[in-house]
Nucleic acid binder design. Structure first.
Lengths: 339, 339
DNA sequence: ATAATCAGTGTAAGCGCTTACATTGAATTA
DNA sequence: TAATTCAATGTAAGCGCTTACACTGATTAT
């Protein structure tokens, strides 16, 4: 059955009876080739099933039309959604998106940066703003533009499109306090190497301190991103005395896990305990009662990030930070504390 | 501030006072270079911040250590999960994963195939088994191995790891019938260009016909993959006379949407109406009552697919099909029909 | 002491492609 | 009619890397 060899430009040229240059032109600038020739070449391309080799092309043209994205994990729906619109925006501009995941590990993020840049990525989408200075320095030296998303950057360095996680968390907390809650606990995401999770925790803390509640923030538990982790953390929180009357969660997944455990424990939400989330994922509207949460327009963030990165790549002027506004969605899980 | 130029192998060689061959060897087969030399070279690599150029490397070595995956959409959690474990398995084998999405469009799938192969993908992961013969032919000619996942292949052609969507759907339907339901309706995924959705619908149809129910299958509505689409389809189904006593959904997202609408309509699940899903996504356990569904071990499928593809790439012998077994998870949403 | 071996390194030929420049011949102009 | 222009195509030089082969000097075997 004989090994099949990928046809090369040369094979096509020979088959069409022209030079490789003409074939290349047919593919990249068809208007520079007269119609009959072009047709002959294209026929050969189809007949041989030729596809240009990316490596050769990138090497010769020093362009790749590729951008890379490194997200912590594909399993988190909010990144998936933002990434989908990011990709749609890019493909309109004729760019291909390469996706890699870091598993929240800065070393792996760095390795993926190198892999993507080695593959010729013209620009990178990264999540958040917390990463080792050495990684940032590496990007700077390479001259590879990147934008951080899902959070705003610290100081004036770098380009970001995101929202103020801390401020949004504070605002939601203030809302909880306004409802009369004085014993508040939090289930946050794992804050290590995750500036979004850390900022949300800080925001809640800050709001509680500002209001100078007598009891203040009873407890903060950090938990991985899974329903059952939220459930377990909730159970632990309910053992505290005095018991919190409201549990603020760092994301909707944790919040829904908490709700489920509350139901299992025979606690009614919000009569016995209030619960809030963050992100407004699809399911938050479907649970019963609906989850009070912070809505983050992930799609819009993806689009804005694409637009920003494209401008950066084309060396057009851009603003350093694009702030996406969030809003609080009040549904049923936040009520007054039990009397 | 001067344009920064990517350092090349040559720059490193010059800085370290060795030949490019030695630098290349330090990177690819360090044991072939004596320690002092290697240290000098590595120092130069770090000092210059050198990262090998993928294009050049691929061109020269004719290997890429890259595999591609083309999924319909990143927004579907079940693909995300399987893909995550697929990637983990690959990266253990030193391969990089490139992900592209087709949006359920065969033409875009084909374009992405070309893009990934052009980028040197040694193998491809595709979803399902339904695609134009021309695409299959293209892969065959190229000699690029691929495995289809999430479904089994038709006939004896190609390599697949998945499960029998139709059989699993039939089995679940039989369970519903055994509970006494005689008026059954279905909300399926959009079956066009989606062999998994089509197979699930066919499986349900088949089971109903086999049992030769008097009323038979009342109705099948196809709906996109979103909670609210499930909700709307459910509402339409409830207008039918006679009303179905059980609604079998093609996936859990549709089922949960249906459950929510049932609650809004004042219908109790399962007392007034039974609902079932398919996939067993995380949230299905958290809703109230828990969703009766078919569990699909997505992670295991991702791992098996990686293993299979790796063997194919290494030209090791493999079985044509790996069947992943599914199981029915009975939770609260399936009960006897109202009397 | 000489020959054989071998580890460590260098030399140089491409890999498949793009593109600056050279060439050709037809159309245009003087 | 000769000179000029220009569109269409060809020629060939790399892009950054790997690797077969050549070379060198030290170690080992004879």
């Amino acid at each position: 059955m004989g090994e099949y060899l990928r046809p090369t430009l040369d094979d096509v040229a020979r088959a069409a009876g022209v030079s490789t240059a003409t074939v290349s032109r047919c593919l990249n600038a068809p208007e520079r080739v007269i119609a009959p020739t072009r047709e002959r070449v294209m026929a050969a391309v189809t007949a041989l099933g030729y596809t240009p080799d990316f490596g050769g092309r990138a090497l010769a043209s020093r362009r790749t039309n590729t951008v890379g994205a490194i997200i912590p994990t594909m399993e988190n729906a909010i990144f998936a959604r933002g990434l989908q619109s990011f990709q749609e925006a890019l493909s309109k501009a004729g760019k291909t998106l390469l996706v890699a995941s870091s598993g929240y590990d800065p070393a792996r993020e760095r390795a993926q940066m190198e892999a993507l840049i080695g593959r010729g990525a013209d620009g990178l989408l990264l999540i958040g703003s917390a990463r080792p200075e050495s990684s940032v320095e590496y990007l700077r030296r390479r001259g590879v533009p990147y934008v951080g998303a899902w959070n705003l950057g610290p100081g004036s360095d770098g380009f970001f499109v995101g929202f103020d996680n801390a401020a949004a968390a504070s605002e939601l907390t203030a809302r909880v306090i306004a409802r009369g809650h004085r014993r508040i606990a939090m289930i946050g995401g794992i804050s290590e190497m995750n500036d979004r999770a850390a900022a949300r925790i800080a925001g809640v803390r800050n709001a509680v301190e500002t209001a100078m509640l007598d009891g203040g923030l009873i407890d903060v538990i950090e938990a991985p991103y899974a329903f059952h982790d939220g459930a377990e953390a909730f159970a632990r929180l309910m053992e505290r005395t005095p018991r919190p009357t409201a549990v603020i969660c760092g994301n909707d997944v944790l919040a829904i896990g908490a709700m489920q455990r509350a139901r299992e424990m025979g606690l009614n939400v919000p009569e016995d305990i209030s619960i809030t989330g963050f992100d407004d994922i699809d399911i938050s509207e479907m649970v019963n009662p609906g989850l009070t949460t912070v809505r983050v327009p992930h799609r819009r963030m993806g689009e804005a990030a694409a637009e920003m990165l494209l401008k950066l790549i084309n060396k057009e002027p851009v603003e350093r930070q694009i702030e996406i506004s969030t809003s609080i969605i009040e549904r049923g899980t936040l009520g007054p504390p039990p009397s």
